[in-house]
Design a protein around this nucleic acid. Structure first.
Length: 463
RNA sequence: GUCUCCUUCGUCUAGGGGUCUAGGACACCGCCCUUUCACGGCGGCAACACGGGUUCAAAUCCCGUAGGAGAUGCCA
């Protein structure tokens, strides 16, 4: 059986992270089954769609390495075809012209709601015949009796009464096709075998199935995956966890982490947590996707990201981090960051954190965390002087020899090593958390070390 | 309102009648390692929404209830 799936975003805004997951599941389904993963840009809402958005969607798919087959289909280029199908349906009696005005319909709807009755189109124009009246819409002549059943790949068997459905609009009064018509026609023409999409489309699927049947086309299989919610169970938004894929890039997440996290959200393979893309392709099964909606957990994403950060080699991690660093770094500064990368990446959860922590290798601290004040005493001032002497007099600045010398100093002065180390750390980094101070000294060198300690000491003396 | 779907630790989940005194991961807490912070190691806290059935046996099957979500557009 050959499998053809598609991802069909509309470029009306930024790509939501939930849509990214839909794309991921489609891609995995295609790759697992050796099928095709097609792309369709649903840009029929000309008012809200932009080229810019469309471009950024492709960028994000590329970023995640979700490669698609063939050229993207641009839905707006297919409008004539959609219209043709609608008119064919009128000819074959499966659809009809309707001249009810939106105002009339609205009035009927409000009346129905007011009287507590379920509303649906009353079929007033069903028996109209002849040519298209001026500003008529085309409605599907929907099946009203019996039931319809959908064997959903994710949701299982779902059945509804056809009486719930009504004669949906296929072509608007201005002659443009509706979403319902366009998806069906495009999915059919593109040879889509499996439609995997958000479960907000679940009930619409029954309407779409009727269009397939009216056209006498085979109905594809459907899989409706649950939406993703924010940490508080509400919709994912900027306020509660980022909402768009672009946000996560800016927050400093790696594509590997997003890939893994999104896959694990609502899907699992036993106890596996860290899943490579190869394993994902091998293991993915659409039936294994959970039916219940999942909440987005930033902490878990961060943990995964930290994991993938550590996995990356120093050079490529540096390249990933580059956009988060300020421009104009000298090649020496870059070299220093690279040398310190091994220890830096153990401490960072995101590229933003990594870039921030790497500052110690190209600029002296300009501000100091409050808790550095603990080491701003007479005693520490004197220790910093002694430590400076060690740095000044060491033949070469090696981590091991510096450590020995500092230990000796601690013994001599009868203080704990930590007292010296933390004072030095504060002076070098402006904060009390960093890689080994001796490693930092080895990288930034004698002059810079002495300078930073002097600056810090001056500060203490002033206050 | 009507229809549809969902409900296992705080979160993501394993589980598909007996192996469940319910497993893993993240988060949290404690201990160890340690010049700090991390990393790593060890340990701890913590869940089957509720009520009825069916069955020798139910987290697992059925029916209700409650709560949540989605659909009900000449948006996509």
């Amino acid at each position: 059986m050959s499998v053809v799936v598609r991802f069909a975003p509309s470029p009306t805004g930024v790509l939501h992270i939930g849509s990214v997951r839909t794309a991921l599941f489609n891609w995995l389904f295609a790759r697992h089954n050796g099928g095709k993963f097609l792309l369709r840009i649903e840009d029929t809402d000309k008012l809200r769609s932009t080229e810019e958005n469309a471009r950024s969607i492709l960028e994000i798919l590329n970023w995640l390495r979700l490669d698609w087959d063939g050229d993207p289909v641009i839905q707006s280029s297919r409008i004539d075809r959609h219209k043709e199908v609608a008119h064919d349906l009128v000819k074959s009696g499966k659809a009809f012209f309707c001249t009810c005005s939106p105002e009339d319909l609205n009035a009927k709807k409000e009346a129905a709601i007011k009287s507590g009755k379920p509303y649906k189109y009353d079929g007033k124009c069903r028996d109209r015949s002849g040519n298209k009246p001026g500003n008529a819409v085309i409605r599907l002549r929907a099946e009203m009796v019996g039931t319809s059943t959908l064997d959903d790949l994710v949701q299982g068997r779902v059945t509804i009464e056809n009486s719930q459905l009504d004669d949906l609009v296929l072509l608007r009064s201005d002659g443009t096709p509706t979403y319902m018509l366009s998806v069906v026609v495009d999915d059919h023409d593109m040879g889509i075998t499996h439609v995997i999409r958000g479960d907000d489309h679940l009930t619409n699927t029954f309407r779409q199935m009727q269009i397939y049947e009216a056209c006498d086309w085979g109905v594809p299989r459907f899989g409706h995956i649950p939406l993703i919610y924010g940490p508080d169970g509400a919709k994912l938004s900027k306020r509660h966890g980022a909402a768009s894929a672009q946000d996560y890039i800016q927050l400093g997440y790696l594509p590997e982490a997003i890939f893994n996290y999104l896959l694990r959200l609502g899907w699992s393979h036993g106890d596996s947590e860290i899943i490579s893309r190869e394993e994902a392709i091998e293991w993915f099964d659409i039936g294994g996707v959970g039916k219940s909606p999942a909440r987005f957990d930033m902490a878990k994403l961060q943990n995964l990201n930290a994991h993938y950060l550590k996995l990356k080699d120093d050079q490529s991690l540096f390249d990933c981090m580059l956009p988060f660093l300020e421009d104009g770094l000298t090649s020496e500064q870059r070299q220093n960051i690279l040398r310190g990368m091994k220890s830096l990446k153990e401490r960072a959860r995101t590229l933003v954190e990594l870039a921030d922590s790497s500052k110690i290798y190209f600029e002296a601290p300009t501000k100091f965390d409050e808790d550095c004040g603990r080491y701003a005493t007479e005693k520490h001032l004197s220790l910093l002087k002694d430590f400076s002497d060690i740095v000044r007099n060491s033949a070469e600045l090696k981590e091991s020899s510096l450590l020995e010398a500092t230990k000796a100093l601690a013994t001599e002065k009868d203080v704990k090593l930590v007292e010296i180390a933390q004072a030095v750390r504060g002076a070098l980094c402006g904060r009390l958390a960093s890689p080994s101070i001796f490693e930092i000294i080895e990288i930034i060198g004698r002059e810079e070390t002495l300078l930073r300690i002097r600056n810090f000491s001056n500060r203490i003396e002033k206050s």
